[in-house]
Design a protein around this nucleic acid. Structure first.
Length: 268
DNA sequence: AAAGCTAGCAACCGCTTTTTA
DNA sequence: TTAAAAAGCGGTTGCTAGCTT
């Protein structure tokens, strides 16, 4: 009955992945495609459970991943989608090519939440924060309510219909967006706009470009040019930025990209 | 210069949903 | 049809780099 067990967790490695492990995993998937995760570690010669391999691949090694901070556009999209979908990170991520649910979740928790709070917006309800209610209490309540909310009220769009999947966000104005626009237009009583970080002209991003601010350690480059030169089996993902490959350097000659970024390839 | 603190992110854990025998 | 495993998902933890004192 049923299937065989996923993995007997005996002798399996945990914790951060080494470059060698990454390389094994990437090599295997590039050669064989994504087969069943249960069998993959053995076949690839990894002492990891399939689940760990899947996570590593989807969150970090996938070649179509964008690295670096979310752009203003992406951030706004996350806010809009969160207003509709709640903490359904994978759903939100599916609307942002090259971004993972984990990445969006982390970004939400570390950046966007704070940003919204500073603006006087409850990140859970996307409504103006009440000054009287204690925040943790409200947060707890909302945590539950967002979880338990059936497909009603503000979550009505959560219905996993295909229409919803197709029609993203473009025309929607959720309360948060409205709030942000209001804040930009007027100095509303009760909200300290001084606290809102100002965007310098040079920081303004043109919609449609993927030029994320390069403030992180990972740089961005147009890897699509590189990818045109490379042929990988069973892949249709090679259309985004990916900057981790440099960590997997091997014997291949380096390809110089830009002034200070170098990429090379060890696979195949 | 060192210690302590904080923020950010990768990875794990455990629950839920889907798939399969 | 049902039970069990695989896959997926979201919450949480722990490590580390950067910042502050």
């Amino acid at each position: 009955m049923g299937r065989q067990p996923c993995c007997d967790k005996v002798g399996l490695k945990k914790g951060p992945w080494s470059a060698e492990e990454d390389q094994k995993l990437v090599n295997f998937i590039l050669t064989n495609g994504q087969c069943c995760w249960r069998a993959l570690p053995k076949l690839a010669g990894l002492l990891r459970c399939g689940k760990s391999c899947r996570l590593r691949w989807t969150n970090y090694l996938r070649p179509d991943l964008k690295r670096g901070l979310l752009s203003e556009d992406e951030e706004q999209m996350v806010i809009d989608l969160h207003a509709q979908l709640g903490n359904r990170w994978s759903k939100i991520a599916s609307h942002l090519p090259g971004r993972t649910d984990n990445e969006i979740k982390n970004h939400w928790n570390t950046h966007i939440k704070k940003k919204l709070k500073k603006m006087g917006i409850d990140p859970l309800t996307h409504m103006p924060l009440s000054t009287t209610t204690s925040e943790p209490l409200q947060e707890q309540k909302m945590d539950k309510s967002t979880k338990e909310l059936p497909e009603t009220s503000l979550q009505s769009t959560i219905t996993e219909s295909k229409e919803e999947e197709k029609s993203t966000t473009s025309t929607l104005l959720d309360p948060t967006t409205e709030m942000m626009m209001m804040l930009m237009d007027d100095d509303i009583d009760g909200f300290c706009t001084d606290e809102v970080p100002l965007i310098e002209p040079h920081e303004i991003l043109v919609p449609g470009t993927n030029d994320a601010p390069s403030s992180t350690t990972s740089s961005s480059c147009d890897s699509s040019k590189l990818l045109e030169e490379l042929q990988f089996p069973d892949f249709d993902l090679w259309d985004g930025d990916f900057n981790h490959w440099e960590d997997l350097l091997g014997d291949r000659p380096k390809l110089a990209i830009g002034d200070d970024e170098e990429y090379s390839w060890t696979f195949i």
